[in-house]
Design a protein around this nucleic acid. Structure first.
Lengths: 218, 218
DNA sequence: AATTATTTTTAGGCATGGCTAAAAATAAAG
DNA sequence: CTTTATTTTTAGCCATGCCTAAAAATAATT
Protein backbone atom coordinates (compact mmCIF):
# COMPACT_ATOMS: atom_id res chain seq x y z
CA UNK A 1 0.00 0.00 0.00
CA UNK A 2 1.42 3.34 -1.11
CA UNK A 3 -0.10 6.40 0.60
CA UNK A 4 -1.08 9.66 -1.08
CA UNK A 5 1.97 11.33 0.39
CA UNK A 6 4.28 8.57 -0.74
CA UNK A 7 2.85 8.75 -4.25
CA UNK A 8 3.43 12.49 -4.33
CA UNK A 9 7.02 12.08 -3.25
CA UNK A 10 7.64 9.37 -5.84
CA UNK A 11 6.20 11.57 -8.55
CA UNK A 12 8.41 14.47 -7.48
CA UNK A 13 11.54 12.32 -7.33
CA UNK A 14 10.69 10.85 -10.72
CA UNK A 15 10.39 14.32 -12.24
CA UNK A 16 13.43 15.79 -10.54
CA UNK A 17 15.54 12.87 -11.66
CA UNK A 18 15.55 14.18 -15.22
CA UNK A 19 17.26 17.29 -13.91
CA UNK A 20 19.48 15.50 -11.39
CA UNK A 21 20.28 12.08 -12.80
CA UNK A 22 23.06 11.55 -10.24
CA UNK A 23 20.55 11.68 -7.40
CA UNK A 24 17.93 14.09 -6.11
CA UNK A 25 19.10 16.12 -3.13
CA UNK A 26 17.05 16.43 0.03
CA UNK A 27 16.78 20.19 -0.41
CA UNK A 28 15.65 19.99 -4.03
CA UNK A 29 12.97 17.53 -3.04
CA UNK A 30 11.93 19.66 -0.09
CA UNK A 31 11.49 22.65 -2.36
CA UNK A 32 9.52 20.64 -4.92
CA UNK A 33 7.23 19.32 -2.18
CA UNK A 34 6.93 22.69 -0.41
CA UNK A 35 8.10 21.13 2.82
CA UNK A 36 11.19 20.99 5.05
CA UNK A 37 14.36 19.01 4.53
CA UNK A 38 13.82 17.09 7.75
CA UNK A 39 10.41 15.93 6.60
CA UNK A 40 11.97 14.78 3.36
CA UNK A 41 14.60 12.75 5.18
CA UNK A 42 11.86 11.01 7.16
CA UNK A 43 9.85 10.16 4.09
CA UNK A 44 12.80 9.11 2.01
CA UNK A 45 13.78 6.64 4.72
CA UNK A 46 10.33 5.17 4.63
CA UNK A 47 10.33 4.93 0.83
CA UNK A 48 13.73 3.31 1.01
CA UNK A 49 12.48 0.67 3.45
CA UNK A 50 9.72 -0.15 1.00
CA UNK A 51 12.30 -0.44 -1.79
CA UNK A 52 10.64 2.33 -3.73
CA UNK A 53 13.85 4.39 -3.82
CA UNK A 54 17.56 3.87 -3.32
CA UNK A 55 18.89 6.09 -0.62
CA UNK A 56 22.22 6.51 1.13
CA UNK A 57 22.65 9.14 3.79
CA UNK A 58 23.97 12.45 2.51
CA UNK A 59 23.97 11.16 -1.05
CA UNK A 60 20.55 12.00 -2.35
CA UNK A 61 17.90 9.64 -3.57
CA UNK A 62 17.32 7.74 -6.80
CA UNK A 63 14.06 6.07 -7.71
CA UNK A 64 14.03 2.25 -7.92
CA UNK A 65 12.42 0.13 -10.63
CA UNK A 66 9.50 -0.52 -8.29
CA UNK A 67 9.20 3.16 -7.39
CA UNK A 68 9.39 4.23 -11.00
CA UNK A 69 6.57 1.85 -11.87
CA UNK A 70 4.42 3.44 -9.18
CA UNK A 71 5.40 6.98 -10.19
CA UNK A 72 4.65 6.38 -13.86
CA UNK A 73 1.26 4.95 -12.94
CA UNK A 74 0.46 8.14 -11.04
CA UNK A 75 1.64 10.24 -13.97
CA UNK A 76 -0.53 8.17 -16.31
CA UNK A 77 -3.57 8.72 -14.13
CA UNK A 78 -2.86 12.42 -13.71
CA UNK A 79 -2.61 13.00 -17.44
CA UNK A 80 -5.61 10.88 -18.35
CA UNK A 81 -7.73 12.83 -15.87
CA UNK A 82 -6.42 16.08 -17.36
CA UNK A 83 -7.64 14.96 -20.77
CA UNK A 84 -11.01 14.06 -19.29
CA UNK A 85 -11.38 17.40 -17.53
CA UNK A 86 -10.47 19.43 -20.59
CA UNK A 87 -12.24 17.40 -23.27
CA UNK A 88 -15.36 16.31 -21.43
CA UNK A 89 -15.88 18.78 -18.60
CA UNK A 90 -14.89 22.07 -20.22
CA UNK A 91 -11.98 22.79 -17.93
CA UNK A 92 -9.39 25.24 -19.18
CA UNK A 93 -5.85 23.95 -19.14
CA UNK A 94 -5.05 26.22 -16.25
CA UNK A 95 -7.85 24.78 -14.12
CA UNK A 96 -7.06 21.11 -14.49
CA UNK A 97 -3.96 20.78 -12.40
CA UNK A 98 -5.35 21.01 -8.87
CA UNK A 99 -8.18 18.62 -9.58
CA UNK A 100 -5.97 16.14 -11.43
CA UNK A 101 -3.63 16.27 -8.43
CA UNK A 102 -6.48 14.79 -6.40
CA UNK A 103 -7.86 12.39 -9.00
CA UNK A 104 -4.45 10.83 -9.70
CA UNK A 105 -4.58 9.04 -6.34
CA UNK A 106 -7.84 7.17 -6.91
CA UNK A 107 -7.11 3.46 -6.79
CA UNK A 108 -8.86 1.23 -9.28
CA UNK A 109 -7.24 -0.59 -12.11
CA UNK A 110 -10.50 -0.88 -13.99
CA UNK A 111 -11.12 2.83 -13.62
CA UNK A 112 -7.87 3.74 -15.35
CA UNK A 113 -8.31 1.18 -18.12
CA UNK A 114 -11.86 2.24 -18.83
CA UNK A 115 -11.09 5.94 -18.61
CA UNK A 116 -8.30 5.45 -21.12
CA UNK A 117 -10.67 3.59 -23.43
CA UNK A 118 -13.44 6.17 -22.93
CA UNK A 119 -11.07 8.94 -23.96
CA UNK A 120 -9.97 7.03 -27.04
CA UNK A 121 -6.48 6.12 -25.75
CA UNK A 122 -5.03 9.64 -25.94
CA UNK A 123 -1.25 9.82 -26.27
CA UNK A 124 -0.79 13.36 -24.98
CA UNK A 125 -2.31 15.40 -22.19
CA UNK A 126 -3.62 18.96 -22.70
CA UNK A 127 -0.13 20.38 -22.05
CA UNK A 128 1.36 18.19 -24.75
CA UNK A 129 3.02 15.82 -22.29
CA UNK A 130 2.99 12.15 -23.26
CA UNK A 131 0.66 9.74 -21.46
CA UNK A 132 2.23 6.42 -20.43
CA UNK A 133 0.42 3.32 -21.69
CA UNK A 134 -0.77 0.41 -19.53
CA UNK A 135 2.76 -0.96 -19.34
CA UNK A 136 4.22 2.39 -18.34
CA UNK A 137 5.90 3.00 -21.67
CA UNK A 138 5.98 6.49 -23.09
CA UNK A 139 8.20 8.47 -25.36
CA UNK A 140 9.80 11.42 -23.56
CA UNK A 141 8.87 14.92 -24.65
CA UNK A 142 10.61 15.85 -27.86
CA UNK A 143 12.52 18.76 -26.43
CA UNK A 144 15.28 20.47 -28.31
CA UNK A 145 17.99 22.96 -27.40
CA UNK A 146 17.03 26.52 -28.20
CA UNK A 147 20.32 26.75 -30.10
CA UNK A 148 18.94 24.24 -32.59
CA UNK A 149 15.74 26.11 -33.32
CA UNK A 150 15.68 27.81 -36.70
CA UNK A 151 14.72 31.48 -37.11
CA UNK A 152 10.98 31.82 -37.62
CA UNK A 153 10.17 28.90 -35.33
CA UNK A 154 8.61 29.16 -31.89
CA UNK A 155 9.14 27.07 -28.80
CA UNK A 156 7.77 26.56 -25.33
CA UNK A 157 10.41 26.73 -22.63
CA UNK A 158 10.43 23.26 -20.99
CA UNK A 159 13.73 22.89 -19.18
CA UNK A 160 17.38 23.68 -18.71
CA UNK A 161 20.54 21.66 -19.29
CA UNK A 162 22.73 23.69 -16.98
CA UNK A 163 21.06 24.20 -13.65
CA UNK A 164 23.76 26.26 -11.99
CA UNK A 165 22.72 29.14 -9.80
CA UNK A 166 24.32 31.61 -12.18
CA UNK A 167 22.43 30.34 -15.16
CA UNK A 168 19.12 30.23 -13.35
CA UNK A 169 19.72 33.75 -12.06
CA UNK A 170 20.46 34.89 -15.59
CA UNK A 171 17.17 33.36 -16.74
CA UNK A 172 15.28 34.99 -13.89
CA UNK A 173 16.80 38.34 -14.66
CA UNK A 174 15.70 38.08 -18.27
CA UNK A 175 12.24 36.77 -17.37
CA UNK A 176 12.86 33.47 -19.08
CA UNK A 177 10.91 30.78 -17.24
CA UNK A 178 9.29 27.41 -17.69
CA UNK A 179 6.26 27.60 -19.95
CA UNK A 180 7.21 30.91 -21.56
CA UNK A 181 6.90 31.14 -25.30
CA UNK A 182 9.98 32.03 -27.28
CA UNK A 183 10.23 32.92 -30.94
CA UNK A 184 13.59 32.83 -32.65
CA UNK A 185 13.86 35.88 -34.91
CA UNK A 186 17.47 35.81 -36.18
CA UNK A 187 20.67 33.86 -35.77
CA UNK A 188 23.96 35.74 -36.04
CA UNK A 189 26.22 33.33 -37.91
CA UNK A 190 29.43 34.88 -36.61
CA UNK A 191 28.91 33.93 -32.94
CA UNK A 192 25.75 31.85 -33.18
CA UNK A 193 23.93 34.28 -30.91
CA UNK A 194 20.17 34.60 -31.22
CA UNK A 195 17.66 37.39 -31.38
CA UNK A 196 14.48 36.12 -29.76
CA UNK A 197 11.05 37.48 -28.93
CA UNK A 198 9.80 36.87 -25.41
CA UNK A 199 6.45 38.28 -24.35
CA UNK A 200 6.52 40.84 -27.13
CA UNK A 201 10.01 42.05 -26.21
CA UNK A 202 13.08 41.40 -28.29
CA UNK A 203 16.08 39.94 -26.52
CA UNK A 204 19.61 39.08 -27.61
CA UNK A 205 21.09 35.90 -26.13
CA UNK A 206 24.45 34.22 -26.59
CA UNK A 207 24.99 30.73 -27.95
CA UNK A 208 26.07 29.63 -24.47
CA UNK A 209 22.65 30.44 -23.12
CA UNK A 210 20.82 28.95 -26.11
CA UNK A 211 22.81 25.76 -25.64
CA UNK A 212 21.49 25.27 -22.14
CA UNK A 213 17.83 25.94 -22.61
CA UNK A 214 15.38 23.28 -23.75
CA UNK A 215 12.24 24.17 -25.67
CA UNK A 216 9.45 22.20 -27.21
CA UNK A 217 8.88 23.47 -30.73
CA UNK A 218 5.32 24.42 -31.59
CA UNK B 1 -11.90 22.23 5.94
CA UNK B 2 -13.62 18.89 6.39
CA UNK B 3 -11.33 15.86 6.19
CA UNK B 4 -12.05 12.60 4.35
CA UNK B 5 -12.72 10.90 7.64
CA UNK B 6 -15.05 13.62 8.82
CA UNK B 7 -16.96 13.46 5.55
CA UNK B 8 -17.36 9.72 5.93
CA UNK B 9 -18.69 10.10 9.45
CA UNK B 10 -21.14 12.78 8.39
CA UNK B 11 -22.40 10.63 5.57
CA UNK B 12 -22.88 7.68 7.94
CA UNK B 13 -24.70 9.80 10.53
CA UNK B 14 -26.87 11.27 7.81
CA UNK B 15 -27.87 7.80 6.62
CA UNK B 16 -28.37 6.28 10.06
CA UNK B 17 -30.55 9.19 11.07
CA UNK B 18 -33.39 7.85 8.94
CA UNK B 19 -33.36 4.70 11.07
CA UNK B 20 -32.69 6.50 14.38
CA UNK B 21 -34.34 9.92 14.19
CA UNK B 22 -33.96 10.39 17.94
CA UNK B 23 -30.20 10.33 17.67
CA UNK B 24 -27.57 7.95 16.34
CA UNK B 25 -25.90 5.88 19.06
CA UNK B 26 -22.14 5.59 19.35
CA UNK B 27 -22.31 1.84 18.81
CA UNK B 28 -24.51 2.05 15.72
CA UNK B 29 -22.10 4.56 14.23
CA UNK B 30 -19.11 2.43 15.17
CA UNK B 31 -20.62 -0.55 13.39
CA UNK B 32 -21.46 1.49 10.30
CA UNK B 33 -17.92 2.84 10.18
CA UNK B 34 -16.30 -0.51 10.98
CA UNK B 35 -14.45 1.02 13.89
CA UNK B 36 -14.57 1.09 17.67
CA UNK B 37 -16.93 3.03 19.92
CA UNK B 38 -14.05 4.92 21.48
CA UNK B 39 -12.89 6.17 18.10
CA UNK B 40 -16.41 7.30 17.36
CA UNK B 41 -16.59 9.28 20.59
CA UNK B 42 -13.37 11.07 19.65
CA UNK B 43 -14.57 11.93 16.18
CA UNK B 44 -18.04 12.96 17.28
CA UNK B 45 -16.48 15.42 19.73
CA UNK B 46 -14.48 16.93 16.94
CA UNK B 47 -17.50 17.19 14.64
CA UNK B 48 -19.43 18.76 17.47
CA UNK B 49 -16.74 21.39 17.99
CA UNK B 50 -17.02 22.25 14.31
CA UNK B 51 -20.80 22.53 14.67
CA UNK B 52 -21.34 19.78 12.13
CA UNK B 53 -23.33 17.68 14.61
CA UNK B 54 -25.19 18.15 17.87
CA UNK B 55 -23.83 15.92 20.54
CA UNK B 56 -24.46 15.46 24.23
CA UNK B 57 -22.61 12.81 26.19
CA UNK B 58 -24.40 9.46 26.40
CA UNK B 59 -27.23 10.77 24.25
CA UNK B 60 -26.18 9.99 20.74
CA UNK B 61 -25.56 12.39 17.90
CA UNK B 62 -27.78 14.29 15.49
CA UNK B 63 -26.56 16.01 12.37
CA UNK B 64 -26.72 19.82 12.28
CA UNK B 65 -27.91 21.98 9.38
CA UNK B 66 -24.30 22.66 8.49
CA UNK B 67 -23.39 18.99 8.78
CA UNK B 68 -26.35 17.91 6.69
CA UNK B 69 -25.35 20.32 3.95
CA UNK B 70 -21.89 18.76 3.86
CA UNK B 71 -23.27 15.21 3.99
CA UNK B 72 -25.74 15.83 1.17
CA UNK B 73 -22.95 17.28 -0.95
CA UNK B 74 -20.93 14.10 -0.44
CA UNK B 75 -23.97 11.98 -1.31
CA UNK B 76 -24.51 14.06 -4.43
CA UNK B 77 -20.94 13.54 -5.53
CA UNK B 78 -21.02 9.83 -4.72
CA UNK B 79 -24.15 9.23 -6.78
CA UNK B 80 -23.04 11.35 -9.72
CA UNK B 81 -19.79 9.41 -9.89
CA UNK B 82 -21.76 6.16 -9.77
CA UNK B 83 -23.74 7.26 -12.79
CA UNK B 84 -20.53 8.17 -14.56
CA UNK B 85 -18.92 4.82 -13.81
CA UNK B 86 -21.90 2.78 -14.94
CA UNK B 87 -22.95 4.80 -17.96
CA UNK B 88 -19.61 5.91 -19.33
CA UNK B 89 -17.04 3.45 -18.04
CA UNK B 90 -18.92 0.15 -18.23
CA UNK B 91 -18.84 -0.56 -14.52
CA UNK B 92 -21.34 -3.10 -13.24
CA UNK B 93 -23.70 -2.34 -10.43
CA UNK B 94 -21.51 -4.22 -8.01
CA UNK B 95 -18.25 -2.56 -8.98
CA UNK B 96 -19.10 1.10 -8.56
CA UNK B 97 -19.31 1.42 -4.83
CA UNK B 98 -15.64 1.22 -3.79
CA UNK B 99 -14.50 3.63 -6.46
CA UNK B 100 -17.32 6.11 -5.83
CA UNK B 101 -16.34 5.98 -2.14
CA UNK B 102 -13.02 7.47 -3.17
CA UNK B 103 -14.24 9.86 -5.84
CA UNK B 104 -16.86 11.42 -3.56
CA UNK B 105 -14.12 13.23 -1.63
CA UNK B 106 -12.60 15.09 -4.56
CA UNK B 107 -12.94 18.81 -3.90
CA UNK B 108 -13.88 21.02 -6.81
CA UNK B 109 -17.12 22.83 -7.23
CA UNK B 110 -16.63 23.13 -10.95
CA UNK B 111 -15.95 19.43 -11.23
CA UNK B 112 -19.31 18.50 -9.70
CA UNK B 113 -21.24 21.05 -11.72
CA UNK B 114 -19.65 20.00 -14.98
CA UNK B 115 -19.94 16.30 -14.23
CA UNK B 116 -23.64 16.78 -13.53
CA UNK B 117 -24.04 18.61 -16.82
CA UNK B 118 -21.95 16.05 -18.72
CA UNK B 119 -24.21 13.26 -17.45
CA UNK B 120 -27.34 15.17 -18.44
CA UNK B 121 -28.43 16.08 -14.90
CA UNK B 122 -29.45 12.56 -13.86
CA UNK B 123 -32.01 12.34 -11.05
CA UNK B 124 -31.23 8.80 -9.95
CA UNK B 125 -28.06 6.81 -9.42
CA UNK B 126 -27.62 3.25 -10.72
CA UNK B 127 -29.16 1.83 -7.51
CA UNK B 128 -32.26 3.93 -7.96
CA UNK B 129 -31.41 6.39 -5.23
CA UNK B 130 -32.17 10.05 -5.92
CA UNK B 131 -29.32 12.47 -6.64
CA UNK B 132 -29.51 15.78 -4.77
CA UNK B 133 -29.41 18.89 -6.96
CA UNK B 134 -27.00 21.80 -6.55
CA UNK B 135 -29.01 23.12 -3.65
CA UNK B 136 -29.13 19.78 -1.88
CA UNK B 137 -32.78 19.14 -2.64
CA UNK B 138 -33.93 15.68 -3.61
CA UNK B 139 -37.24 13.89 -3.69
CA UNK B 140 -37.37 10.57 -1.91
CA UNK B 141 -38.35 7.64 -4.09
CA UNK B 142 -41.80 6.01 -3.58
CA UNK B 143 -40.34 2.59 -3.36
CA UNK B 144 -41.47 -0.49 -1.47
CA UNK B 145 -39.63 -3.63 -0.41
CA UNK B 146 -40.24 -6.56 -2.72
CA UNK B 147 -41.05 -8.58 0.42
CA UNK B 148 -44.13 -6.40 0.88
CA UNK B 149 -45.51 -6.94 -2.62
CA UNK B 150 -48.53 -9.27 -2.76
CA UNK B 151 -48.69 -12.24 -5.18
CA UNK B 152 -50.21 -11.17 -8.46
CA UNK B 153 -48.68 -7.70 -8.32
CA UNK B 154 -45.85 -6.44 -10.49
CA UNK B 155 -43.04 -4.01 -9.72
CA UNK B 156 -40.20 -2.18 -11.39
CA UNK B 157 -36.85 -2.75 -9.74
CA UNK B 158 -35.71 0.66 -8.48
CA UNK B 159 -33.14 0.14 -5.77
CA UNK B 160 -31.49 -1.85 -3.02
CA UNK B 161 -31.43 -1.47 0.73
CA UNK B 162 -28.26 -3.47 1.27
CA UNK B 163 -25.57 -2.28 -1.12
CA UNK B 164 -22.87 -4.70 -0.04
CA UNK B 165 -20.72 -6.17 -2.73
CA UNK B 166 -22.03 -9.69 -1.93
CA UNK B 167 -25.64 -8.70 -2.38
CA UNK B 168 -25.04 -6.78 -5.57
CA UNK B 169 -23.09 -9.69 -6.98
CA UNK B 170 -25.98 -11.99 -6.13
CA UNK B 171 -28.30 -9.68 -8.05
CA UNK B 172 -25.96 -9.51 -11.03
CA UNK B 173 -25.71 -13.30 -11.07
CA UNK B 174 -29.47 -13.64 -11.14
CA UNK B 175 -29.91 -10.94 -13.74
CA UNK B 176 -31.83 -8.72 -11.37
CA UNK B 177 -31.07 -5.11 -12.25
CA UNK B 178 -32.48 -1.60 -12.14
CA UNK B 179 -35.48 -1.15 -14.36
CA UNK B 180 -36.21 -4.86 -14.63
CA UNK B 181 -39.85 -5.88 -14.24
CA UNK B 182 -40.67 -8.36 -11.51
CA UNK B 183 -43.97 -10.17 -10.98
CA UNK B 184 -44.60 -11.85 -7.65
CA UNK B 185 -46.22 -15.22 -8.38
CA UNK B 186 -46.37 -16.92 -4.96
CA UNK B 187 -45.34 -16.38 -1.37
CA UNK B 188 -44.41 -19.43 0.65
CA UNK B 189 -45.86 -18.65 4.07
CA UNK B 190 -43.52 -21.03 5.88
CA UNK B 191 -40.31 -19.07 5.17
CA UNK B 192 -41.73 -16.00 3.42
CA UNK B 193 -39.74 -16.83 0.30
CA UNK B 194 -41.08 -15.69 -3.05
CA UNK B 195 -41.54 -17.18 -6.48
CA UNK B 196 -41.12 -14.39 -8.98
CA UNK B 197 -41.15 -14.00 -12.75
CA UNK B 198 -38.25 -12.06 -14.25
CA UNK B 199 -37.99 -11.69 -18.03
CA UNK B 200 -40.25 -14.67 -18.56
CA UNK B 201 -38.21 -16.89 -16.26
CA UNK B 202 -39.41 -18.10 -12.88
CA UNK B 203 -37.06 -17.54 -9.98
CA UNK B 204 -37.19 -18.50 -6.34
CA UNK B 205 -35.80 -15.93 -3.90
CA UNK B 206 -35.51 -15.96 -0.13
CA UNK B 207 -37.12 -13.46 2.22
CA UNK B 208 -33.67 -12.07 2.99
CA UNK B 209 -33.25 -11.05 -0.62
CA UNK B 210 -36.82 -9.75 -0.94
CA UNK B 211 -36.24 -7.63 2.13
CA UNK B 212 -33.34 -5.81 0.53
CA UNK B 213 -34.74 -5.07 -2.88
CA UNK B 214 -36.89 -2.02 -3.57
CA UNK B 215 -39.49 -1.94 -6.32
CA UNK B 216 -42.02 0.59 -7.54
CA UNK B 217 -45.34 -1.19 -7.94
CA UNK B 218 -47.11 -0.83 -11.26
C1' DA C 1 44.89 22.06 5.60
C1' DA C 2 41.90 24.64 8.52
C1' DT C 3 38.04 27.33 8.90
C1' DT C 4 33.52 28.67 7.44
C1' DA C 5 29.23 27.79 5.14
C1' DT C 6 25.79 24.76 3.58
C1' DT C 7 23.33 20.61 3.49
C1' DT C 8 21.48 16.80 5.72
C1' DT C 9 20.22 14.17 9.56
C1' DT C 10 18.68 13.43 14.27
C1' DA C 11 15.94 14.38 18.31
C1' DG C 12 11.88 15.62 20.22
C1' DG C 13 6.99 17.58 19.53
C1' DC C 14 2.34 18.24 17.49
C1' DA C 15 -2.21 16.96 15.14
C1' DT C 16 -5.04 13.39 13.09
C1' DG C 17 -7.37 9.15 13.53
C1' DG C 18 -7.10 4.92 15.12
C1' DC C 19 -6.55 1.24 19.10
C1' DT C 20 -7.09 -1.31 24.03
C1' DA C 21 -8.34 -1.44 28.66
C1' DA C 22 -10.49 0.55 32.48
C1' DA C 23 -13.89 3.71 34.48
C1' DA C 24 -18.36 5.91 34.42
C1' DA C 25 -23.06 6.32 33.04
C1' DT C 26 -27.28 4.34 31.55
C1' DA C 27 -30.45 0.40 30.81
C1' DA C 28 -32.27 -4.08 32.06
C1' DA C 29 -33.34 -7.72 35.37
C1' DG C 30 -34.15 -9.71 39.53
C1' DC D 1 -34.78 -0.68 44.27
C1' DT D 2 -30.65 -2.89 44.07
C1' DT D 3 -27.73 -5.67 41.18
C1' DT D 4 -26.13 -6.94 36.72
C1' DA D 5 -25.41 -6.03 31.91
C1' DT D 6 -24.62 -2.93 28.30
C1' DT D 7 -23.22 1.28 26.40
C1' DT D 8 -20.33 5.11 26.35
C1' DT D 9 -16.53 7.72 27.73
C1' DT D 10 -11.88 8.46 29.36
C1' DA D 11 -6.98 7.58 29.59
C1' DG D 12 -3.04 6.29 27.54
C1' DC D 13 -0.62 4.39 23.49
C1' DC D 14 0.59 3.82 18.28
C1' DA D 15 1.53 5.22 13.24
C1' DT D 16 1.60 8.82 9.78
C1' DG D 17 3.37 13.06 8.27
C1' DC D 18 4.60 17.28 9.43
C1' DC D 19 7.38 20.81 12.27
C1' DT D 20 11.65 23.32 14.87
C1' DA D 21 16.12 23.34 16.73
C1' DA D 22 20.43 21.27 17.30
C1' DA D 23 24.04 18.11 15.81
C1' DA D 24 26.68 15.89 12.23
C1' DA D 25 28.44 15.46 7.68
C1' DT D 26 29.81 17.45 3.43
C1' DA D 27 31.20 21.37 0.43
C1' DA D 28 33.41 25.70 -0.24
C1' DT D 29 36.90 29.24 1.02
C1' DT D 30 40.78 31.08 2.51
Amino acid sequence: MISFSEENYLKAIFHLQRKFPAGVSTNALAEEMSTKASSVTDMVKKLSEKDLVNYKKYQGVKISKKGEKAAVEVVRKHRLWEVFLVEKLNFSWAEVHDVAEQLEHIQSEKLVLELDKFLGFPRKDPHGDPIPDTHGNFQPLEKVLLAEVEPGQQGLCVGVRDSSREFLEYLDKNKIALGKEIEVLEREEFDQSLLIKLEGEELHISNTIANNLFVKTI
